[in-house]
Design a protein around this nucleic acid. Structure first.
Length: 567
RNA sequence: GAGCGCGUAGCUCAGUCGGUAGAGCGCCUGACUUUUAAUCAGGAUGUCCAGGGUUCGAGUCCCUGCGCGCUCACCA
């Protein structure tokens, strides 16, 4: 991290939430005198990483960076992404193949269940690898930690023996939080069955602190087992597990969703019973879908991480995560363009801002204090401006093209000399806009068949286009358009500004016909400009496809290919 | 039952330390165009949920209430 060239009082007064969070840690360090700080995020590898996983790592990284700035980077920090991969497989996920295979392994640790996709590797390990690839894709600085590896490697042994020693205290914390039925059988230790390998949820028969063992009975056979709590022979129940981990690793900071408020409370009490201080942290609000429902993987509502990254940059998602973690936010497709344009706007403003504002600017947090320069378009004789994503989406619709090169042709008209080489991030935006067009705009198109009058008019237009000289300008095409329609009574407009009885104007209906029949839209671009950029021969081909019914047939096929019915 | 979040323009939402209410979209007018909507300039729009309190001053802080929604109470 490069040194931050800002006065200490400005940094000290920074009020963005990552700074507020980091100050809790500064106080903690002052109180305890500790020489380093550990951040943790948790992950359950029973499924693929999701957008909440990203949010938690991104937000924790922002707090970590703020802490480093507040302390001048004098206190070493680490971020651990902890995978709870020794957890037993509770139910077979609906969205994976080989359901039978998984069903045979129900109850066993995820790292003992074969992966339904990749042979020769466990479900837990496979999902761990997916998580790491996912995090690496964003360039997060983290250390991956496997629960299974630590349990089996003995890293938790001392903490596990301590918990056994303080079992009464732990029970006293947990039991009141449980229903009567569960309380009667609750035990924080979950022995791994030595024969079946299943993570057993059984009542405690007895325990031996000196030996470090628990005794329990197999409910199926009534056989009595004595199992060491150490060495990976036992796992802990969720809340004691969290607490034990905090204690054993010395976790100083972990945030969690508000659904875990009670868990944080109980785990905090347990970690105190083990003689450690619970980590700092806060509870962020959950994400909702378009209708205000909680996003859940099983329901498949809301937005997946892949959905977002198909249409927008990781930075824009990072910005979304930065903004108001304490408010429940709706997370669905429509918020993407807004997030992208907010991001571009903040990036644009950053160089103009004073230090104090910079520390409050989301891009400072998104880019760990070093936001890149905004890519601007410089029209001839004009000031540079940042092209908004909203405008690019319009352009993609206007260009009626899934080809980024066509959009670049539009952009060069505005600012000659620009290219993907000079504006690589803008090129990324162009790619996103094109995809958005393909996935949202194009499916909504409704092509209309021309009637006889329209058919004649289109034939006339085709002939007029054919008669244009090579390299005709947009204006010449536009003029040709008017001249084709002017003699046709349906399109004559005698109320137009410049209309005379001899030379009537041309009504909007003519253009609307072109949009509806040729582009499948109710509105469209200035047609002269469109035809030139799209290409005169291509436009003529488009007209022919409209006349022979090809456009409608193509669109039906396109929709069928996507599995959607025509609009 | 317990714990939260939200309520601001037609819609979606910002609003930092308490100091004359903002953005985007939409809408209206105009520029450009031979009259259409990539663009540009300008404009209109508010019971800041309600009531009370603190204050010289409250969208903002405190209390109460109303409405909408979420989470937890089995597991993680």
């Amino acid at each position: 991290m490069p040194p931050l060239d800002m006065p200490a009082d400005i940094i000290g007064a920074a009020s963005a939430w990552p700074f507020e969070e980091a100050r809790k840690l500064v106080k903690r360090v002052e109180r305890t005198g500790q020489g380093s700080v550990l951040f943790e995020t948790g992950y359950g590898p029973s499924g693929l990483p999701h957008i909440g996983t990203f949010g938690e790592v991104a937000r924790t990284s922002m707090v970590r960076h703020a802490f480093r700035v507040l302390t001048g980077d004098r206190i070493p920090t680490r971020l651990v992404c902890f995978s709870d991969d020794m957890d037993g497989l509770r139910k077979v996920p609906d969205n994976v193949p080989n359901q039978d295979l998984l069903r045979r392994h129900l109850g066993r640790p995820l790292t003992e269940v074969p992966d339904p996709i990749e042979p020769g590797i466990s479900f837990g390990h496979a999902n761990n690898a997916r998580l790491r690839a996912f995090l690496d894709r964003f360039g997060f600085d983290y250390e991956f930690v496997s629960s299974t590896a630590l349990y089996r490697g003995g890293r938790f042994d001392a903490a596990l023996r301590l918990m056994l020693e303080r079992l009464e205290a732990v029970m006293a914390i947990m039991v009141p939080s449980l229903g009567a039925e569960r309380a009667a059988t609750y035990c924080p230790f979950l022995p791994i069955h030595p024969e079946s390998g299943v993570v057993m949820q059984v009542p405690l028969v007895s325990h031996d602190v000196a030996a470090g063992t628990i005794s329990w009975r197999d409910p199926a056979t009534a056989a009595l087992f004595e199992t060491p709590v150490t060495g990976g022979h036992c796992k802990l129940q969720w809340k004691p597990d969290w607490a034990m981990r905090w204690h054993a690793l010395g976790v100083d900071y972990e945030m969690a969703g508000k659904d875990l408020i009670d868990s944080v409370k109980l785990s905090g009490q347990i970690v105190r019973a083990l003689g450690s201080e619970p980590p700092e942290g806060f509870n962020y609000e959950l994400f909702l879908d378009q209708n205000g429902q909680k996003i859940s993987k099983s329901k498949g509502n809301g937005l997946s991480i892949d959905d977002w990254l198909r249409y927008a940059s990781p930075e824009s998602l990072s910005l979304f995560m930065f903004q108001k973690p304490s408010a429940a936010k709706r997370l669905y497709f429509d918020v993407i363009p807004r997030a992208v344009d907010d991001y571009l706007g903040f990036l644009d403003a950053f160089p103009r801002q004073a230090d104090k504002e910079k520390l409050g600017n989301p891009v400072w947090h998104v880019h760990a204090g070093e936001p890149p320069a905004a890519e601007k378009l410089q029209p001839e004789g004009g000031a540079g401006t940042t092209l908004s994503f909203a405008m690019l989406l319009n352009l993609a619709a206007v260009a009626n093209s899934e080809d980024p090169a066509v959009l670049w042709a539009f952009l060069r008209r505005y600012a000659p000399g620009v290219s993907p080489a000079t504006h690589p991030r803008l090129d990324g935006l162009v790619g996103y806009a094109v995809r958005y067009y393909r996935d949202f705009v194009r499916p909504a198109k409704r092509y209309r068949a021309p009637d006889d009058i329209e058919r004649d008019a289109l034939l006339g237009l085709d002939a007029a286009l054919a008669a244009l000289p090579e390299g005709a300008s947009a204006e010449e095409v536009q003029t040709a358009l008017y001249d084709v329609a002017r003699p046709i009574p349906r399109y004559q407009d005698f109320k137009a500004k410049t209309a005379t009885p001899e030379r009537p104007g041309v009504s909007n209906e003519w253009f609307n016909t072109l949009y509806q029949v040729l582009l499948g839209e109710e509105r469209g671009p200035r047609f002269g400009s469109f035809a030139v950029l799209y290409g005169i021969p291509q436009t003529r081909a488009l007209i022919r496809r409209a006349l022979d019914g090809g456009l409608i047939a193509d669109h039906v096929a396109f929709l069928a290919g996507r599995g959607t019915a025509p609009a």
